[in-house]
C-alpha cells in the first residue's frame, strides 16, 4: 500500500468518525426536544360541581380559595394542578 493510499484511508476514517459523531449529537438533541409539557390548574366548585381549567400561575396550590362560582356564587377552590403533554407542531 502506497503512502497516499494510507492517507486517503485515514482521511476516510476521520470523515466517517465525524459524520457518526454529528448524527449522534443530532439524535441526542432531538431526544431532548421530544416531550413538552404544560401545567394546568383545575378550579372546581364543591357545591355545584362547576369546573374551569386555566394555565398554572405562580402562587397556585391545591385547595387555594379562588373566585366566586359563576353558577352558584359559592367560593371555588383549586382542585388539581397537573402537567399535560403539548402536542408537537
Amino acid at each position: 500500500m502506497q503512502i497516499s493510499e494510507l492517507y486517503t484511508l485515514l482521511l476516510l476514517m476521520l470523515l466517517l468518525f465525524l459524520i457518526t459523531s454529528l448524527i449522534r449529537v443530532f439524535i441526542e438533541r432531538k431526544k431532548l426536544k421530544r416531550e413538552q409539557f404544560q401545567t394546568l390548574t383545575l378550579i372546581k366548585c364543591s357545591k355545584c360541581g362547576y369546573t374551569e381549567e386555566r394555565e398554572f400561575q405562580t402562587g397556585d396550590y391545591i385547595l387555594k380559595p379562588e373566585k366566586e362560582c359563576p353558577k352558584c356564587k359559592a367560593q371555588t377552590r383549586i382542585f388539581k394542578i397537573y402537567d399535560v403533554k403539548v402536542p408537537r407542531k
Partner: peptide, 12 residues
Amino acid sequence: ITPMRKEISNAA
C-alpha cells in the same frame, strides 16, 4: 420528582 402528570393526579 417533576410536576404531577394528569394520569397520576387522576389516581387520587
